[in-house]
Simulated scan of single mutants.
Amino acid sequence: MQNRILSVDIFRGMTIVLMILVNTPGTWSAVYAPFLHAEWHGYTPTDLVFPFFLFIVGTSITFSYKSRTATAATYKKISVRTLKLIALGLFLGAFTLSFPFIKDFADIRFPGVLQRIGVVYFFAAILFLNVNWKTLIGIAIALSLGYWLLMVLVPVNGIESTLERAPNNLANWVDVKIFGSHNYKADYDPEGLLSTIPSIVSALFGIFTGLILLSRQDKKATILMGIGGSMLIVGHLWGWVFPINKALWTSSFVLVTGGWANLILALIYYLTDVRNIEFGSVFRYAGANAIVLYFLSSFISKLMGMIQIGETSLHGWLFGTIYANDYMSLQLSSLLYGLTVVAFYMLLAYVLYKRKIFIKV
């Protein structure tokens, strides 16, 4: 049991470390391609990070609620955690240095990473508590197919729907109608309302994997690899008609990212649980306080971008003074800055872990 939890903690830690790395380059004007999101259709390693985290949310749900005790106290716990995550996300989007430290209402973005994690956690946990795994599979299929049909068949303002950017993109149209100007950009929001539906499936895939890890099946790593490989194949085939796209969180994207998540977790599980190889403890520390590390890294990064030093920000001053130089490419300098940030938060995670401080959001 301990090794099983270790495997998931390592994967969660690796995911949060990558989230911090891709979110904090020295400069966005010089970033290696693998650390950038795809322009639109397709995917890069960076596009795998957020769905991996939602996948782990689902896997963790199976561990937290494996007794399936659907009581009022359990529902309260789920609801409170959901509201905390949404509140933290809204705070990140609304905070500013100027008194009263909240942006003008018109400038606040409503969707966000933590908000999506909260919503996905809520629905995935409620479903897990109330239906069996066969019904969950049916729900996952229905949500995936239903989202596909919505996106390709429902016209927007009397115009045939498209999977390109606005104006006649159904996901963007819904976001504009619901949130108005409170979106990431005028033509799309990567954490928008409609695309949250298939993101719930990312967590359901994590639940299925968690059930396998909790089962008495032999060769669990082999089973997960087989499932992961199959999901990759089906996802890429589906991508021919429903393109793999993170911004829209298309159903093919859900399958492909779920496939990679299963393959990587299977490898970690094999190394730690089957072969008993000491592996990835440094990531385990980060995995134990993943949400806290993500929130702190996002908040501090935002602060450093707001604090002015001369004509630049604290972030820009540190990067320009310490990292940017003539004998190194700007891309490498930018990456080294990001790695320094990651090292700081991994050290913080280590200290918290050794002092047995586990902050649950």
Rank of each mutant, 00 (worst) to 15 (best):
M151F: 03
I309Y: 08
A266L: 01
V154T: 11
A266S: 09
F242I: 13
H37S: 06
M1E: 15
L263G: 05
L211H: 12
G13Y: 07
T135G: 01
L318C: 08
N169A: 10
A87S: 11
T135A: 14
L149A: 11
Q115E: 15
Q308Y: 11
G305Y: 08
F358N: 11
S144C: 01
G146T: 02
G58I: 03
V113M: 04
A125S: 14
L255G: 02
V8Y: 05
W133R: 14
S333K: 02
I108Q: 10
S202A: 09
V152I: 14
G138Y: 06
K354D: 07
L97R: 04
W249A: 04
L336S: 11
Y147M: 07
T59C: 07
K220C: 12
R81K: 11
S67P: 03
T46P: 01
Y345E: 05
F358A: 12
F179T: 05
A286L: 02
A30Q: 05
M346I: 10
Y285K: 07
F53L: 02
L213W: 04
V119S: 04
R165I: 13
L114M: 12
S161W: 04
D104V: 13
P167T: 14
L330E: 15
A266T: 01
P34C: 08
I207C: 04
T135I: 15
P25N: 00
R284S: 13
L83S: 13
Y269S: 01
L211N: 14
G226H: 02
T340W: 06
L318K: 02
N130C: 10
W317M: 09
A94K: 09
A73S: 15
V119N: 02
L36A: 08
P45I: 00
I102F: 15
I277C: 05
T46D: 01
L85N: 00
A125L: 05
R4V: 12
I56C: 06
F101V: 04
F299A: 07
F123S: 11
I244C: 00
D47T: 00
S301A: 13
G316K: 02
R216S: 15
L170D: 09
S29A: 15
E311Q: 14
V80F: 13
L293I: 10
L352I: 08
H182D: 07
I200D: 06
F91T: 10
F105T: 12
V201Q: 01
I300F: 11
D187F: 14
V156N: 06
K354Y: 09
T250E: 09
H182C: 03
